[in-house]
Amino acid sequence: MSTATTPSLYEQIGGSAAVEAAVDVFYRRVLSDDRISHFFDDVDMDRQRAKQKAFLTMAFGGPHNYTGKDMRAGHARLVAMGLNDSHFDAVVEQLAATLRELGVGEPQIAEVAAIAESTRNDVLNR
């Protein structure tokens, strides 16, 4: 009989230190991706970085207080600019690539992708 508890996804990835390591890599990838970079033309980078950290924390299975309503309100302007499934897919792709770059295992990457996927309808306001 084992008494060891399985570490949570957030702990497996490396917790807040992993978020800190991932945020610049992720944000740089997103800003360099021609499919989605134009959605970030007018944003304040410092504020955007704080939002990216909150998003990554949530996607890594960590503590968060995101609600579907926040997700909808936060992306409504972008949906009006044409944000659609293809852009959402690109962000998820860059998220996975970020984690691979940081040496996170494929099973954990799949779990993160599933958490990100769960926000799709709220992000796209439908």
């Binding site: 610049d24 944000y27 740089r28 800003l31 980078m45 970085r49």
Partner: peptide, 18 residues
């Protein structure tokens, strides 16, 4: 300032160093 921050970041400077 906004445009340069983005360019410096994409050229490799960490956000905390801008």
């Amino acid at each position: 300032v906004r445009s340069l921050k983005k360019k410096l970041f994409l050229a490799g400077i960490a956000m905390r160093d801008i």
